[in-house]
Design a binder for these strands. Structure first.
Lengths: 169, 169
DNA sequence: CATTTTATGTCAGCATTGTTGACATTACAA
DNA sequence: TTGTAATGTCAACAATGCTGACATAAAATG
């Protein structure tokens, strides 16, 4: 696993970690890890009439209570028609509360009801458990690296949404 | 179940990197990074009549030329009906060649045709580019951490498939 | 105040990709 | 010969994307 230094273009940087094989490995890891990452919530959601799209909505409403529909749309990156279908079910089923905005009455501020929070914590509990085990097995240094690589893989136009969210941690 | 941040195996480990905030951050990073990760291929695929499922099939056929349908099914984790729909299109369109197995004539060995390889390299080129930029920006230590965390996030029942693939790197 | 723009909701239709269930064919294995 | 395995296919359905069109209410603007 050690990389022996090799002369490279001028700077003396060792860029052997950028070989196509390593990139391919990373690409496949993203695929397999994402599958693992979503598998627990997917299994839980089968006991409900909900899918992954509902999970995402519930997650980000819990993450930023009172979030507007437009902000949620920006985060999820889907059309309003697609989100609305999911949101309508959650509101009808009493998991999400949609309140008219106080400053701008055109807006709707979204909140989880008590029942919505029950589902949210069941889903996020399973997901956190897997993440915690992976973090623990890999160690704190690895977690920093994990974060760094993933941050750099995000699309530029998502940065604003992400930074706003992470400011709330 | 719930572990408080406290030393574990006598190493005086600091488990503060396992706080719920850090886990939440990791969870959201997976979501946003995966979106970025798939965005370039998705954009390219819009110029074809293909979708993400075709990309996955093409990727793993290229990765392990001659792979059997059953092995591909195990890797992708979908039903044979779902895969077959995609595979049939690719074969009909002349991107994939399906040859009767030589040792076991029940099996079909899958190969990319020249045309299939053109699509594959267009897709993987875009994906490698993004991965390379993320790796480069994060650095080799971070890449090791990225790998370690993701490896630990994979479902146990995928290990065999993964190890077989990575043995070919 | 009149007009325009914004935020949201909704209907209809369609595409992709996943599912289950059933059934057929071929070929290997016991 | 019988059973099982690998593959293909038909049909129906579900989840979740998309586009386009239209409606309403409220804010913003001239």
């Amino acid at each position: 696993m050690q990389e022996r230094p090799r002369p490279s273009v001028g700077h003396g940087d060792d860029l052997l970690f950028l070989t196509d094989d390593n990139l391919l490995h990373g690409i496949e890891l993203m695929f397999f890890a994402y599958k693992g990452f979503t598998s627990d919530p997917d299994r839980i959601l089968q006991n409900y009439t909900y899918g992954r799209a509902h999970h995402r909505a519930v997650h980000f409403i819990n993450r930023q209570p009172g979030i507007t529909v437009n902000n949620l749309l920006a985060i999820l990156g889907v059309t309003k028609q697609s989100l609305n279908r999911v949101l309508r079910q959650l509101v009808d089923d009493g998991l999400v509360d949609s309140r008219v905005g106080k400053v701008d009455r055109r807006q709707r501020n979204l909140f989880l009801t008590d029942e919505g929070q029950v589902l949210e914590s069941e889903l996020s509990g399973a997901q956190r458990l897997r993440m915690r085990e992976a973090f623990k097995a890999a160690g704190p240094d690895a977690v920093r690296g994990f974060r760094s690589v993933l941050e750099n893989m995000v699309d530029a136009d998502m940065r604003k949404s992400i930074d706003r969210l992470q400011g709330k941690l």
